[in-house]
Amino acid sequence: MSKTFYQFLMTQRNPESYEPIAEFANNAFFDQSFPKQSTNFNEISKYLELNGNYLPSMTVFDDAWQKYLDLNNH
């Protein structure tokens, strides 16, 4: 079974990094309401649009999602 997006995102955490996906992961870790069990792009995207004030741009999510897909397809 493949990982949820949140599980993937947690592999990108790095408190020492200023890389956008690492910062996204660091902030999502502290977001108690993040849809942790989801593998659905639209569900996570909608959640972040409404609640992801720690995300400077949805492009960061799009880049992270593409990385997630690339890992799950190999």
Rank of each mutant, 00 (worst) to 15 (best):
K3D: 09
T4N: 11
F5I: 10
Y6I: 02
Q7C: 00
F8I: 09
F8T: 07
T11R: 04
R13A: 11
P15Y: 05
S17A: 14
S17F: 12
Y18V: 10
E19S: 07
P20M: 07
P20H: 13
I21Y: 04
I21K: 01
A22L: 01
A22M: 05
A22E: 14
E23Y: 02
A25P: 15
N26Q: 05
N26R: 03
N27G: 03
A28W: 10
A28S: 15
F29P: 00
F30Y: 15
D31G: 07
D31C: 04
Q32N: 14
S33T: 13
F34V: 09
P35V: 03
P35Y: 12
K36N: 04
Q37I: 10
Q37P: 04
S38F: 07
F41E: 10
F41K: 14
N42F: 10
S45H: 08
S45A: 04
Y47H: 15
E49S: 05
E49M: 05
L50I: 00
G52K: 02
N53K: 05
L55F: 02
L55D: 01
S57G: 00
M58D: 00
V60L: 00
V60W: 02
F61I: 02
F61E: 02
D62Y: 11
D63K: 03
A64E: 04
A64H: 09
W65I: 06
K67E: 13
K67I: 01
K67T: 06
K67G: 02
Y68Q: 09
L69C: 05
L69Y: 12
L69F: 08
L71M: 14
L71W: 12
L71H: 12
L71V: 13
N72H: 03
H74L: 06
